[in-house]
């Protein structure tokens, strides 16, 4: 299982408060398997999210999902 690391990012993504959007492809009891931007698989703890389903988008920080990303908001809330 690959994890985002300081070796491939300019600096430590955890130190930098970076939240990574990932798409859920498989849901287990306390963890989900997610895909990141490059299509890499990650095991992500989902204890802090109310309900997680396959296809959902999560904001992941330090291996833990800290928020569900709200897909419907994307079109209407930006500066366009």
């Amino acid at each position: 299982m690959n994890v985002p690391s300081c070796e491939t990012h300019p600096g430590c993504i955890t130190c930098g408060d970076v939240g990574v959007p990932m798409r859920v492809i498989e849901v287990g009891d306390a963890a989900a398997v997610c895909l990141d931007r490059e299509g890499k698989r990650h095991e992500v703890a989902i204890d802090l999210i109310d309900s997680v389903g396959t296809g959902a988008w999560l904001l992941v920080h330090a291996g833990v999902a800290i928020a569900a990303v709200d897909a419907p908001a994307i079109g209407g809330r930006g500066p366009r």
Partner: peptide, 18 residues
């Protein structure tokens, strides 16, 4: 709140509880 796609006004209650 500009970051509405991620930030709920009340935050993450589960995280705050832990």
């Amino acid at each position: 709140n500009q970051y509405t796609r991620v930030v709920p006004r009340e935050g993450n209650l589960r995280a705050l509880e832990v």
